[in-house]
Each structure stands twice: as structure tokens, then as C-alpha cells.
């Protein structure tokens, strides 16, 4: 009999609460990746409005000048900043850079790959995303 697989599914995959900041970083990376994908699709639709003439283009552009449009753009700025900086950390990690060195395991067995450099890079990515969003908000909502 095929046993029930008991997989956690998407809910378990996206639950960022149980495994520390590294899992939060993973979750944010996925979320911002999806957000940027939706933005890209929206952006292609937006810019393609130009083929319908100047009026259609101006109408579409006017949407980005609304408060909602500004908020979306500020989110896009934050998502791009986080996804890029954290993405560089992950890419280097994927190549084995910054993940620590194998050694003699000693109790209490702290994992070298979850080191302070990795954690600091995650916090820096989050901080840079917030700074970029604040700057973006200043430009978009400023005089």
C-alpha cells in the first residue's frame, strides 16, 4: 500500500519560524523572487502599452504616479535590493565560499556553515533593502 507521504507541502516550506534567520532569508529570497517576477510581467504589459499610441502610453504611465503605484515601486526597490545582495551571498555559498571548513566535530556541534558571516550578510541585505526603500519613498513622495 502506498503510504501517506506526510510531506509538509508549501505551507511547511514557507514557514519561516522554526529554523532561524537562515530560513527567514530563504523565505524572503523566494518571496522577493516571485514578487520581482510579477513585477517583470507587469512591466512588460506596461511598456507594451506604447504600441497602442501616445494616449494609451500616457494613461499607463499615470498609473505609476498614483499613491498605490508609488507603494508598488517602493516594494519593488526593496525586493530588488534584498534579492540582489542576499542572492550574491547564496551564489557564493553555492560555490562553497563562506560556508566554513570541515573539521573535527566537537560537542555541542555548532554547524560551521551557519556562521556569523552568513548571518551578518543576511542582516546587511535586509538593512540595505530598508534603506533603499526609504530612499525610494523620499524620491517618489518628496517634493
Amino acid at each position: 500500500m502506498e503510504r501517506q507521504s506526510n510531506r509538509e507541502g508549501v505551507k511547511g516550506m514557507l514557514n519561516p519560524t522554526r529554523y532561524g534567520i537562515e530560513r527567514v532569508a530563504y523565505w524572503l529570497q523566494r518571496l522577493t523572487g516571485l514578487g520581482l517576477l510579477f513585477y517583470l510581467i507587469g512591466h512588460v504589459i506596461e511598456t507594451s502599452a506604447i504600441v497602442n499610441g501616445k494616449v494609451a502610453w500616457d494613461n499607463m504611465l499615470a498609473l505609476t504616479q498614483t499613491t498605490e503605484g508609488h507603494i508598488i515601486l517602493i516594494l519593488v526597490i526593496g525586493m530588488s535590493a534584498y534579492h540582489t545582495v542576499n542572492g550574491i551571498r547564496v551564489m557564493l555559498g553555492h560555490g562553497g565560499i563562506g560556508v566554513g571548513k570541515p573539521g573535527m566535530p566537537d560537542y555541542p556541534y555548532k554547524a560551521a556553515s551557519l556562521n556569523y558571516k552568513q548571518r551578518a550578510s543576511i542582516w546587511i541585505s535586509i538593512a540595505l533593502a530598508i534603506i533603499a526603500m526609504l530612499y525610494g519613498a523620499g524620491v517618489l513622495f518628496g517634493d
Binding site: E22, Y26, A112, Q118
Partner: peptide, 28 residues
């Protein structure tokens, strides 16, 4: 995707996340 949860729960200090990234280092 180097979420690191495997290494967080490993009770023997194996650090699977490190092993996997070092292995991928060869492929990349």
C-alpha cells in the same frame, strides 16, 4: 537552496548544508 535548516537540526555536527555547498563547488 542553502536554507541551512538541515544543519540547524543535525544532532551530530555533520553540517549537511556545508557538505552540499562544497560538493556543488566542484560542479560550478
Amino acid at each position: 537552496h542553502f536554507a541551512g535548516s538541515c544543519s540547524k537540526v543535525c544532532p551530530k555536527g555533520v553540517d549537511p548544508a556545508m557538505g552540499i555547498q562544497l560538493l556543488r563547488g566542484y560542479l560550478l
